[in-house]
């Protein structure tokens, strides 16, 4: 697939218009997971618009973003950084062999108090 085609698909999947961003950085000012991100919410918006998709596809932030939607809630321009992160994350985990958590690992990594809701949502976020 052409790079430009891939970027277009990711943008569509995000359902948000990165061009509306006025580069105020409020998303990153609000983000509770900022310290655990290599690429920050405002940079996702900027990179997707500049077509720098490779940086995003390899970002650690894809799996540390909490999808808490604080950035979306506070954006003064109606842009949804979290939706761009999600769109890129889907691009990664939908690729063959890119599942982040294997089912057989589960018994080892979970304790008996973990609610199903957490397991299901984690699987949906990290696996296809």
């Amino acid at each position: 697939m052409e790079k430009s085609e891939q970027i277009k698909l990711i943008k569509e999947r995000s359902g948000t218009d990165a061009k509306k961003c006025m580069k105020c950085g409020k998303c990153s000012g609000r983000c509770p997971a900022y310290a655990d991100m290599d690429i920050k919410p405002h940079q996702f918006v900027s990179y997707i618009e500049k077509g720098e998709i490779d940086k995003l596809l390899n970002s650690k932030s894809l799996f540390t973003c909490l999808t808490c939607f604080a950035c979306v809630e506070r954006c003064p321009r109606g842009v949804a950084p979290a939706a761009i992160i999600e769109a890129v994350r889907q691009e990664v985990i939908r690729m063959q062999g890119e599942n982040r958590v294997k089912a057989e690992e589960i018994p080892e990594i979970v304790d008996d108090k973990i609610p199903q809701q957490l397991l299901v949502s984690m699987f949906r976020k990290y696996n296809k």
């Binding site: 509770p32 997971a33 909490l66 999808t67 604080a70 397991l119 949502s121």
Partner: peptide, 13 residues
């Protein structure tokens, strides 16, 4: 946020 689903893979967060 309480840390949500990253709790499994990134317990420290």
């Amino acid at each position: 946020c309480c840390g949500a689903y990253v709790s499994v893979t990134h317990k420290e967060i």
